[in-house]
Every structure is written in C-alpha cells, then in structure tokens.
Simulated assay, not measured.
Amino acid sequence: MDVDPFWTLIEACRQQALSQDDRLEWLRGELAQRSPAEIVEFQVCLNQVTADAFTWDLVAAAERIFGGWCSDDGFCYFGLWMVGLGREAFERAVADPDALARTPEVRRLVGLPRSEWGGAWPGWESLDYVALEAHELVAGESGDCGDAFYDAVKARASSDAEPRHPAGERWDVRDEEEASRKLPRLSSAFPLAIGT
C-alpha cells in the first residue's frame, strides 16, 4: 500500500462516524478484509506519515495546545490524531503547524478547560494498534503474533522511517515573543498561564 491508498482509507474512515472508537471499528473491519501484507503496509504508511510530522515546530504546536508541555507519548498520540484529521489538514499542518488553529477539531477546544475536552482530546493512541488487531483477525491468532507483525513492519520500513529526534530547530513555546511569531494563531487561541 503506498501513501495514496493509505490516505484514501483514512478519508473513508473519517466519513464513517464522529467517535474515534466507531471509526476504529470500521477501519479494523476494512483492514481485516485485506491480505496480511496489505495490513503491514498500512502500518508502514502510518509510521512514515507520523514520522513526517515529527518536527520541533509541530512539537511546539502540540505544547501550545496542551498548555505549554507535551510528553513524548503525548506527541506520538497527537501525531496519530493529526492523521485522523485527513490528508489535507495533516499535510497543511506539517507544512505550517499554525494551520492547526483553523481546523474545526482544534477550534472546538478553544476556551475550554482541558478537563472538558473529553472525546475531543487531540490524541488517538488506538490508531497505532488497529493494523495489529486486524492482522490478528486475519491470521486467526492473538497475543504472540504481535512480534511477527512488528518484525514484518520493520522489514518493510525504510531505514529513516522512525527518526530518533524531531526535525528542525528546537525552540521554547513558552517564549511568548517567539511563539507569537512562529505560531500566531495557536498562541492567540491557547494563551499560556503566567509562570507556565
């Protein structure tokens, strides 16, 4: 599966339901109708596109949305959530992280305390496991086949599929002057508390 069919599947998934759980159920079912090799390719594409989003500017955008800090795992789940926004929004955000401020999913969060984000939380950890779950359904196994699945993914991935460090230059989103220059819309939409 190359990147175009991957995004076609993600776009079709977006059309199914608003709930991430419902979308995952649909996606798992769609993947389970494919060959094990195609399911592995889906995961390879997912890993590659999320690696494309592993930049210091997007880390800063996530940190701004989350109030000034985002863990490594939190950013991983944020990148998966960005995939769920669809190809156009994802690619726009990779090119210009401040463009996230224009997405309906982010606009819904503006002004709300994080405690009220609920199902709108900008993270989608479960997307990272849906191909494994579909692979287990197709293979008729569970549990131990995860190693074989991830070995197959690793064998198919390019050597630079999962960078160890974000691309670009690191900067501090808590520096209001720099944040206002690099992420003007997100900085305005998600002001940081004094002393953050």
Rank of each mutant, 00 (worst) to 15 (best):
P113F: 03
D73Q: 10
G111R: 03
V94G: 02
G119M: 09
A101S: 14
F78I: 10
L112H: 12
V110R: 13
W81P: 07
R108Q: 14
V110N: 06
D72M: 05
Y77R: 03
G84S: 08
G111F: 12
D98P: 07
V110P: 05
W121Q: 03
G84F: 00
F78C: 07
D98A: 07
V106D: 02
V94M: 06
W121S: 08
A120M: 12
V83F: 00
L100F: 03
L80T: 05
D96M: 09
R107F: 02
G79Y: 00
V110Q: 12
V110Y: 04
R87S: 13
W117N: 06
L85N: 01
L112F: 08
R87V: 04
R92V: 08
F75P: 01
V94L: 13
R92F: 02
R87W: 00
P97E: 05
F75L: 13
L85K: 00
G111E: 09
G118S: 14
L100E: 05
L100S: 06
F75D: 02
F75R: 02
V106T: 08
A89N: 03
A99D: 13
W81G: 04
A101E: 12
Y77G: 00
E91Q: 15
A99K: 00
L112I: 10
T103F: 09
V94Y: 00
L80N: 07
A101Y: 01
P113S: 06
E88H: 11
A95C: 09
D96Y: 02
R102C: 05
P113M: 06
A99V: 05
Y77D: 13
W121A: 09
E88R: 15
D73L: 11
G119C: 06
V106K: 00
G86D: 12
R92G: 07
P104E: 09
V94I: 15
A95M: 06
F90H: 12
P122E: 07
S115P: 04
G84P: 06
F75A: 03
W117Q: 05
W121H: 14
A101C: 08
G84I: 14
W117M: 08
W81N: 03
D73G: 10
